[in-house]
Simulated assay, not measured.
Amino acid sequence: MANVVWKQRRVTALGVLRYRSLGKISQANVTRLKFADPARSLPGPADVIDRQSTGGLSSEEYLKRVRNGDA
């Protein structure tokens, strides 16, 4: 078994994970790895927030209304 570590790198792995228990991976059968471009920065909050999906409400306000049955 090979021990491989990529420090400070983002990677997308395609395959199957097997868990020993909640949050504890026992085995990973990876069929494909794709390394992210290190020059590209991660998206910020403004890149992933879509106010249209909540009718213009903040996520906090939207969830509050859903919990109260008002959304």
Rank of each mutant, 00 (worst) to 15 (best):
R32K: 12
I25C: 10
A39P: 08
S53Q: 09
Y19A: 09
S26G: 12
A2W: 04
D70G: 03
I49P: 00
Q27T: 04
N29K: 11
L17N: 08
A46C: 05
T54F: 02
D37F: 10
R40E: 14
R32S: 13
R67W: 03
T54D: 05
Y19P: 01
G44Q: 13
S53L: 14
V48A: 06
L22D: 00
A71K: 05
S53T: 13
R65I: 02
P45S: 04
V5C: 05
G44D: 14
T12F: 14
G56L: 04
R40S: 13
L33Y: 09
V11F: 07
R9N: 14
P43S: 04
N68Q: 15
G15C: 05
D50V: 01
R51H: 04
V4P: 00
K7Y: 08
S41N: 07
Q52V: 07
A36T: 07
R67C: 01
I49K: 08
Q8A: 14
D47N: 07
K24H: 12
K7H: 10
L33D: 06
G44V: 09
Y62A: 05
I25H: 09
V66R: 03
L17G: 04
S26I: 07
Q27K: 10
P45G: 02
D47L: 05
R51C: 00
E61Q: 05
S53E: 12
W6A: 13
N29S: 11
G23L: 07
R32I: 01
Y62L: 01
G15Y: 06
G55H: 00
S58V: 02
R10E: 11
R65Y: 01
D47K: 10
L57G: 01
S21I: 02
D70H: 02
W6E: 13
R40I: 10
R18T: 14
P45E: 07
S58Q: 01
A46Y: 02
P38C: 11
G15D: 06
L14H: 06
A36D: 07
S26D: 11
Y62H: 13
R67Q: 08
G44E: 14
A46H: 09
G69D: 08
Q8Y: 12
S21K: 09
G55A: 03
L57H: 02
P38D: 13
G55R: 00
L22H: 12
A2H: 06
R67Y: 03
S59A: 12
E60W: 00
D50R: 03
L57T: 03
E61M: 01
T31H: 08
Q52R: 02
A71Y: 10
A71E: 15
S58R: 03
G44N: 13
K34E: 12
L63D: 13
V5R: 09
T54P: 01
R18E: 15
G56W: 03
D50A: 02
V30N: 01
L63I: 08
Q8R: 15
L22K: 15
G69Y: 05
R32F: 04
V5P: 00
R18K: 11
T31R: 09
N29C: 05
S26V: 10
D50E: 08
T12Q: 08
D37P: 02
L42A: 15
S21F: 03
E60R: 02
N29I: 12
S53M: 13
A39C: 07
I25V: 15
G69I: 06
L57V: 02
D47V: 08
A71F: 09
